[in-house]
Simulated assay, not measured.
Amino acid sequence: MSLKDKYQSALDLAKENGAEMENFHEENDAIIFNGTVPSPYVRNLIWDKFKAINSLAKDADAPAEIHANITVKDDSVYHHHTVVAGDTLGEIAKHYFDDAKKYMAIFEANKGILKDPNMIVVGQVLAIPNP
C-alpha cells in the first residue's frame, strides 16, 4: 500500500469538512498534505485522523512521514456549528470540548442570537469558542 493510499481517508475527511487542498502527494517516502481548512476544529480533525491511521494517541506527535501545512481560514472561533434536531448546548459542548459542562461557554459566545441556553433552534449557526 502506498502512503497516498494509507492516508486517503484523511484527505477524504478534509474534503468532507470543507478543506481546499492545494496538493496531496507522495514524495521522498513522505506524504505531502497542504491545504486550507475553515476552522481550527477541522485542522484538529485531520491531525487526529493522521494519528488514528497510525494507532497513535490524540496527544501524540504527528507521524514523521507526514509533511503538512494546514492553514486555517478563520481562527477567531474554534468552529461554526449548525444546530440540527436533537442538539443541546451540552451535547454540542461534549462534541467539541469533550465536556458537556462547558455549554455555558458556547452560550456566552452566542448571546447575540441566544437568549436562553435551553432554547436553541434548528438551523442556527453557533460560534464555538476556542477552547
Score class of each variant (00 low, 15 high):
residue 1 M to V: 11
residue 1 M to K: 10
residue 5 D to P: 11
residue 5 D to T: 15
residue 8 Q to Y: 12
residue 8 Q to N: 11
residue 9 S to F: 04
residue 10 A to H: 12
residue 10 A to C: 09
residue 10 A to M: 08
residue 11 L to A: 14
residue 12 D to E: 15
residue 12 D to T: 15
residue 14 A to P: 08
residue 14 A to C: 08
residue 16 E to G: 05
residue 20 E to L: 14
residue 20 E to H: 14
residue 22 E to H: 12
residue 29 D to T: 10
residue 29 D to M: 12
residue 30 A to C: 14
residue 30 A to E: 14
residue 31 I to Y: 01
residue 34 N to I: 08
residue 34 N to H: 15
residue 35 G to I: 05
residue 36 T to L: 11
residue 37 V to Y: 08
residue 42 V to G: 04
residue 42 V to Q: 02
residue 46 I to G: 09
residue 49 K to V: 10
residue 51 K to T: 02
residue 52 A to D: 02
residue 52 A to T: 05
residue 54 N to T: 07
residue 57 A to C: 01
residue 58 K to A: 12
residue 59 D to I: 00
residue 60 A to V: 04
residue 62 A to Q: 14
residue 65 E to L: 09
residue 66 I to L: 13
residue 66 I to R: 14
residue 67 H to R: 15
residue 67 H to Y: 15
residue 70 I to H: 06
residue 71 T to E: 14
residue 71 T to W: 12
residue 76 S to C: 03
residue 76 S to G: 03
residue 77 V to A: 10
residue 79 H to Y: 08
residue 79 H to T: 02
residue 80 H to K: 15
residue 82 T to A: 04
residue 83 V to K: 00
residue 84 V to S: 04
residue 85 A to E: 14
residue 85 A to H: 11
residue 86 G to N: 05
residue 87 D to R: 00
residue 89 L to Y: 12
residue 92 I to R: 04
residue 92 I to T: 01
residue 93 A to G: 00
residue 93 A to C: 01
residue 93 A to N: 03
residue 93 A to D: 04
residue 97 F to G: 00
residue 97 F to K: 02
residue 98 D to I: 07
residue 101 K to N: 13
residue 105 A to W: 10
residue 106 I to Y: 06
residue 107 F to N: 03
residue 108 E to T: 12
residue 112 G to M: 08
residue 114 L to N: 07
residue 114 L to V: 07
residue 116 D to Q: 02
residue 117 P to Q: 03
residue 118 N to V: 01
residue 118 N to L: 02
residue 119 M to L: 08
residue 121 V to W: 09
residue 128 I to G: 01
residue 130 N to H: 08
residue 130 N to D: 09
residue 131 P to E: 11
